[in-house]
Structures are given as C-alpha cells and as structure tokens.
Amino acid sequence: MPKQDIASSQFQRKISEFCEVRIAPVTSRRVLENIKPYLISLVIYRKSPPLLNGRINWTAIADACGIDDELTVELKKQLRPGLDAIIRWLGAPAALEDLRPSKPKIKPAKTDIRARGSTTLSTRKPRRRGSEGAPVQAASAQRGPQPKPIREFPEPLFEATDDPATFQDALVYHMRRFGDS
C-alpha cells in the first residue's frame, strides 16, 4: 500500500465529506457505498479518473463501481466536481468538459488607446501606422542582408551555348547564367 501523507489523508476526508453532502441525496445507500471507496482509492493510489478522448469515461467509472444501471444524469452532474477536484489535486490536465472558451475581450476605441498610452509606461515596441492611421502588421525581423530587388528581365552573365537534356540540369545551368541562387 502506498505511503499515506498528511495531504492525502486530508483530501480523502474531503472526498468522503463530498460524497455524504453531494452524492448521498441523489442516490441509494448501496451506490454511495460503492462510489465513496472508488473515489478514495483514486486518491490513495494517486490515479486520475478514467478519461476517454480527454473526457470523463463514465462507462469505466460505472464498471469500476459496479453501478452500471444506477449512473444517472443527475448522479454524473453531482459526481463531476469530485472527479475534477481529484484531477486538480493530482495535477493532471483538466477534462475537456471543464475547459470553457474564454469570452472575447472588448477592445477600447482608438482614442482610449492613445490616451492610455500617454499616461502609462509601456515596454512594448511602438506600432507603425499605415496611410489611414491603422496599425500595420509588422513581420518578424529577418536576419541577414536585405534581398536584392527582383528584376523582371535580368541580363544574363554569359550567352547560352548549350541546352541541357534534363530539367534539373537546365535549371542549374540557367541559375548560374543569371547569377541566381
């Protein structure tokens, strides 16, 4: 049996109280007596509740507890916070049901941005403004020398003297002919 530490025994007591408060009112005594040891064993052995594709696997929980027919929607609803608490206590990633999309943030008007920028210090780089005053998306800074301008009809470095047989040879030949890399 794994070593019991103080945090584990305190958390086991909380799970036991959770079962008495949340699970007992919605189910029979037999189901409660099957669920409580299962949840406590998850804490003792530091195991995450069974997940299937990132969601709680209710079928596996019902099989492990021996409550196949008694696992109702209301029981799942009351059991989910306890399972989530165990997942958080173990430090495992949250189940997908618990991840809610964040609310879209409302952007302040342009006058608010300018007013706020003048009163507070910022470590951000200043944004470039386009012709209409709208911020321009800055590309990531590239290292190295600036590329040469593209000429539509460049002058060849030497006159063509032969015609290579394969495409690859012809490409290499003409790249050398025009000084391209």
Score class of each variant (00 low, 15 high):
Lys3Val: 09
Lys14Ala: 10
Phe11Asn: 01
Arg46Val: 02
Ala85Val: 03
Asn53Lys: 15
Gln137Val: 14
Arg128Asn: 10
Ala115Gln: 07
Thr166Asn: 04
Lys77Gly: 02
Phe18Gln: 02
Ala7Glu: 10
Tyr45Leu: 12
Tyr173Val: 01
Ser122Gly: 12
Glu70Leu: 09
Ala85Glu: 14
Ala95Ile: 01
Gln137Asn: 12
Glu70Gly: 01
Gln146Val: 13
Arg124Leu: 09
Asp5Ile: 10
Gln78Trp: 03
Pro2Val: 09
Glu155Leu: 07
Ile113Arg: 09
Arg151Gly: 00
Arg177Ala: 06
Thr27Phe: 04
Ile15Cys: 01
Thr120Gly: 03
Arg124Gln: 03
Phe167Pro: 00
Glu74Gly: 02
Phe18Asn: 02
Pro147His: 13
Ala109Leu: 11
Lys107Leu: 15
Ala7Gln: 12
Arg80Met: 14
Ala141Asp: 02
Ala92Tyr: 14
Glu17Arg: 04
Thr59Gln: 14
Ser131Ile: 11
Ala24Val: 06
Asp63Arg: 15
Thr111Tyr: 09
Pro81Phe: 11
Ser118Met: 12
Arg114Phe: 11
Ile6Arg: 10
Leu42Ile: 09
Lys105Pro: 00
Leu157Phe: 08
Ser8Ala: 15
Leu157Thr: 06
Ser102Pro: 01
Ala94Phe: 09
Pro37Ser: 14
Ala60Ile: 08
Lys148Tyr: 08
Ile113Glu: 02
Arg127Ala: 12
Leu42Arg: 10
Trp58Tyr: 14
Ser16Gln: 08
Arg100Glu: 03
Arg30Pro: 01
Lys3Pro: 00
Pro154Trp: 07
Val172Cys: 04
Ala24Leu: 12
Asp112Glu: 03
Ser16Tyr: 13
Arg13Pro: 00
Arg29His: 05
Ala160Lys: 04
Lys125Ser: 04
Arg13Asn: 11
Asp63His: 13
Arg88His: 11
Ala138Gln: 14
Pro37Gln: 09
Arg143His: 07
Lys103Gln: 07
Asp84Asn: 15
Thr166Phe: 06
Ile56Thr: 10
Ser102Asn: 02
Leu171Ile: 08
Ile150Gly: 00
Gly179Asp: 12
Ser28Thr: 15
Gln137Gly: 06
Arg29Ala: 10
Leu171Phe: 12
Thr119Gln: 14
Ile61Ala: 11
Arg127Lys: 13
Leu157Ala: 06
Asp98Leu: 13
Ile56Val: 15
Cys19Met: 05
Leu157Asp: 03
Ala92Val: 08
Gly91Met: 11
Gln78Glu: 11
Phe18Ala: 05
Asp63Pro: 00
Arg22Ala: 15
Ser8Trp: 01
Ala62Glu: 06
Leu42His: 06
Pro101Val: 11
Met175Phe: 09
Pro108Leu: 07
Gln12Ala: 07
Ile23Leu: 15
Leu99Cys: 05
